[in-house]
Write a protein that binds this DNA or RNA. Structure first.
Length: 569
DNA sequence: GCCGTTTTCGGCCCGACTGTTTTCAGTCG
């Protein structure tokens, strides 16, 4: 039996650790950066990179060359990377976690380890308390205080916690509104990862132009919900709000608003690729403008579209700015026309009080969906609550509601469970009477998940697989599926794979949805709403769909129900 | 380490803030 190949996340973690330890050892910064880029690339790839490497095809990915492919093959075949094992023997691994403390980088971590013999976080705390850090030249009492504060706040070996997009968006919008009300404000916008609709964020970014940058920055740090000011300059400030969220503001003159917005929206990888590309053509890009190196002339741009146009690209929507091929596509005029929230014509996965956890009646859900401008709603209550004749009672209520609603239709659906043995838990004769069948994994995620999902797809009554992996962001990893096989099977059978817009699901994730879309899978953007309010999660789902490069044509519920029924054949 | 519409060698984004300094290195995004 062949051992399962390592998962992309495990490979990526190993390259990140290789980068950390190499950096502490003072190795070439460009090689360290290459390891980090490779880790990111592996993490953002949908297919198994280990499988690709074993076929000699991993080096076709950007940022993966011969050397890194060989290291991946080595991990797949032996379970270990010699280069990493060697460095682990040289550096105590906990020294790398010093770098997780804010303000401490590789140079400082290395000096504390080498010059003081400190190799664990406990020893680091002890060294700071006994004022031994200040003995090192260039470090003082302030550094000791900073270390102790960070350790007391629980910063440590684990990754810093990232917040959910669904939590961050309302906060960043509130801050944007508060800044707009300041008399010196001209333009204010959200930026950063929330503008790109990335599923999680580390901090919330706001940018602005102002007639008086220092006054606007001062207003920002004195907003009522600010708990702590981390940094405060004339054009840039960072605060922590009472919810523990980190907010960054940056201000520049109006004439370079486009430059600033582009810079501060990122992603970092997108900007680096953009700037490297520009540099090859004799241009130097910063948040203040584009410098023609030869003449020293600086061009500034009031909006992003003009900036991208000057650099020779079509306008790139923020959701695509991840260094995932968008620059090449924009240069060639081949960017997709991304799906928009307003394109949605129905909801295809939601619940009512017929599910025990549902908060609204069928009529309330339907009325709310109609108010959003939808034409239909597939009611997909949990199969568990629709047994022993209850589903017929539900159908009667659906008919009743449809009788009262003009030009809106509630469809009969169900969210069936894919059992541990791969069987869909609703009898075929019941499924045959339904308009729309969603099948989802809810338990036993580690028990043959691929085979179970494939079996569900094989059921001719199943129209769609719900929240494909079952992950809960930052709580549960979800099923480790063979995504290529699932997508291949979905294409063969015409089964849809949804994007579930629940803030902690967003499942399929962006990379999976992009691969599915490219393969020809139809993808409904759903909310899995259990209440009227959560129908608004459609915005998060559409963000995810746009990050997956999906067009209106690829998103199933941009069609009318009649068109969808015809497509089902 | 990776990469190539001037390169298979010699490059590799750019600027702000902090703490410790008397002009800068380290860190961060």
């Amino acid at each position: 039996m062949i051992a399962a190949s390592p998962r992309n996340t495990d490979l990526a973690d190993q390259f990140d650790q290789l980068a950390d330890l190499s950096e502490i050892l003072g190795e070439q910064s460009f090689r360290v950066a290459a390891y980090r880029r490779a880790a990111t690339r592996i993490r953002d790839t949908a297919s198994s990179v280990a499988e690709l490497a074993l076929q000699g095809k991993a080096k076709e990915l950007p940022d993966i060359g011969k050397t890194i492919e060989a290291k991946i093959v080595e991990i797949a075949e032996t379970g270990e990377m010699a280069a990493l094992a060697k460095r682990r023997a040289e550096v105590p691994v906990e020294v790398a976690s010093f770098m997780r403390l804010p303000g401490l980088g590789p140079k400082t971590a290395a000096r504390i380890w080498r010059e003081l013999g400190v190799s664990t976080l406990a020893e680091l705390q002890n060294a700071a308390e006994s004022q031994r850090i200040r003995a090192l030249s260039g470090l003082g009492a302030a550094t000791e205080t900073k270390i102790l504060k960070a350790l007391a706040e629980g910063a440590g070996p684990s990754e810093p916690r990232r917040g959910l997009l669904g939590k961050g968006l309302p906060v960043v919008r509130e801050v944007v509104e508060a800044l707009r009300s300041h008399p010196s404000a001209i333009d204010v916008s959200d930026a950063g990862s929330t503008r790109r609709r990335r599923e999680t964020f580390r901090d919330l970014d706001v940018i602005a132009t102002s007639t008086d940058p220092a006054a606007l920055t001062a207003h920002f740090v004195s907003l009522p919900w600010v708990l702590e000011v981390v940094a405060h300059g004339e054009t840039k400030a960072t605060v922590i709000d009472r919810g523990g969220l980190r907010l960054d503001l940056r201000v520049v003159p109006p004439e370079c608003y486009g430059d600033l917005l582009q810079h501060f929206t990122g992603s970092k990888d997108h900007n680096v690729a953009l700037r490297e590309d520009a540099q090859r053509r004799g241009l130097s890009i910063s948040e203040y403008g584009v410098t023609v190196v030869e003449t020293g002339e600086v061009k500034t741009f009031r909006d992003e579209a003009a900036l991208y146009a000057f650099l020779g690209y079509a306008y790139i929507p923020p959701e695509l700015r991840e260094d995932g091929g968008e620059l090449e596509a924009a240069r060639a005029g081949k960017l997709p026309h991304l799906v928009k929230l307003a394109d949605l014509r129905g909801e295809m996965h939601c619940h009512s009080t017929w599910s025990a956890d549902g908060k609204a009646t069928i009529e309330e859900m339907a009325t709310a969906a109609a108010a959003r401008g939808y034409e239909f709603l597939c009611l997909t209550d949990h199969s568990h609550y629709l047994r022993e004749g209850r589903i017929e009672e539900q159908w009667a209520e659906i008919d009743d509601v449809n009788g009262r609603l003009d030009s809106f239709r509630v469809l009969r659906g169900v969210e069936a469970n894919i059992n541990a043995n791969g069987i869909v838990d609703v009898p075929d004769d019941v499924l045959a009477q339904l308009d729309w069948v969603v099948a989802s994994l809810h338990t036993s995620f580690d028990k043959n998940p691929t085979e179970r999902v494939l079996a569900a797809i094989d059921n001719p009554h199943v129209d769609c697989i719900g929240h494909l992996t079952g992950r809960r962001i930052s709580r549960r990893h979800g099923a480790d599926l063979d995504i290529d096989r699932v997508i291949g099977h979905a294409v063969e059978t015409g089964t849809a794979l949804e994007i579930n817009g629940q803030p902690d699901r967003l499942d399929m994730r962006d990379a999976h949805a992009r691969l599915a879309g490219e393969a020809g899978v139809l993808i409904p953007v759903n909310t899995d709403a259990h209440s009227v309010e959560s129908l608004a999660y459609a915005e998060l789902g559409i963000g995810q769909a746009r990050r997956a490069w999906l067009t209106k044509e690829q998103v199933l519920n941009t069609r009318s129900w009649v068109e969808i029924e015809v497509g089902k054949t």
